[in-house]
């Protein structure tokens, strides 16, 4: 796909067709965790459970490490990740803080103070920040 007017937004991956193709199986793996039996099997033996899915070695390592920013670059989508957050009994806030590279208390304090400002975060192009 061409003409992506959103690729200059810093720290942001837009889940378009290219990403959805790349991440198809890793997202489908996450989706499987909406079933209690699958959650139990995954938590009991993550590596064996992941063997059942056609994911790449890089995606597999990122899932095992819960490295969500890397998973985003490999086609993962945050709404699918949320099944994994909740399987791990983590809140969305905790996982968003992790992706933002912040501790949860610091992230929460930023949100209470009005959130991350848009100024400076619009574009990686200096003139459009």
């Amino acid at each position: 796909m061409s003409n992506k007017d959103y690729n200059d937004i810093p720290g942001t991956t837009i889940f378009d067709g290219d990403m959805a193709r790349k991440g198809y199986w890793v997202n489908q793996f996450c989706m499987s965790l909406v079933k209690p039996d699958n959650r139990a099997r995954f938590l009991a033996d993550e590596a064996t459970y992941l063997d059942e899915w056609q994911i790449t070695a890089e995606q597999r390592t990122a899932v095992l490490k819960r490295d969500y920013n890397t998973l985003l670059s490999l086609g993962g989508n945050v709404y699918f990740f949320s099944k994994l957050f909740f399987t791990d009994e983590k809140s969305f806030e905790a996982c968003a803080a992790q992706m933002a590279g912040m501790s949860q208390p610091d992230y929460r304090a930023m949100m209470i103070n009005g959130g991350r400002a848009v100024a400076g975060n619009r574009s990686t192009r200096v003139e459009d920040r």
């Binding site: 937004i9 720290g11 942001t12 991956t13 968003a96 933002a100 949100m111 959130g115 991350r116 848009v118």
Partner: peptide, 15 residues
């Protein structure tokens, strides 16, 4: 309303 749930820009709000 405004929100970003993913990546290093997570937490963006624009009142």
């Amino acid at each position: 309303m405004s929100h970003q749930l993913q990546g290093p820009r997570a937490g963006l709000i624009n009142q």
